[in-house]
């Protein structure tokens, strides 16, 4: 059983600059911000280290931070330039009964995160969903396709805050 702060210190020692920050100011959960291109190594360490043993990935969710510059076009629709998209990893150890939240923020224009499917196989579909909804590219993912949206969906990534509904989809009017 370890607190998030202790784990942060362990990680900081081991990985140095890949571990960016420990955030506990906002309620309710503290989380550790990590480098998106080093997530796989950090995860593997978290899983294999003897006193950490994070063997289960509870949840992996993409999030649009919407912290870029908001611009309104002439139709009044909002687009966001810059800022970040993030991936949250909620992991836990079923043996040692502790939990941890990781956050990996990546560039909105070129969102790339390294996959953790090698570490936790359950991440596969979660990552596909994050790709489907936010367009986050998971490097080295074995099968990065859309999962919930149609495979031929070409109107962007629906959960981004600046997503616009298409007028027509395959000849059908979208807003009914």
């Amino acid at each position: 059983m370890k607190t998030a702060e202790e784990i942060f210190n362990t990680l900081k020692e081991k990985f140095g600059s890949s571990i960016v920050e420990f955030k506990a100011d906002k309620p309710v959960e503290p989380f550790i911000i990590v480098n998106p291109l080093e997530v796989d190594k950090i995860s593997l360490f978290l899983k294999d280290e003897k006193d950490l043993l994070f063997d289960s990935l509870m949840n992996l969710s993409g999030v649009d931070d919407a912290n870029g510059i908001k611009e309104k076009d002439d139709k009044g629709l909002e687009t966001i330039k810059g800022g970040t998209l993030s991936v949250y990893y909620h992991i836990e150890s079923t043996k040692l009964r502790h939990k941890l939240t990781l956050k990996a923020s990546t560039d909105r224009e070129k969102p790339e995160v390294v996959t953790v499917t090698e570490v936790w196989k359950g991440a596969d579909w979660h990552e596909r969903e994050a790709y489907d909804m936010y367009g986050i590219i998971f490097l080295n993912h074995p099968d990065l396709r859309r999962i919930l949206m149609p495979y031929d969906w070409e109107f962007g990534f629906p959960l981004r805050k600046d997503y616009k509904n298409p007028e027509f989809y395959q000849g059908m009017k979208v807003p009914y």
Binding site: K26, P27, E29, H90
Partner: peptide, 9 residues
Amino acid sequence: PPEGQIYTR
């Protein structure tokens, strides 16, 4: 709610 995040299961 206040600004923040939570994972509950």
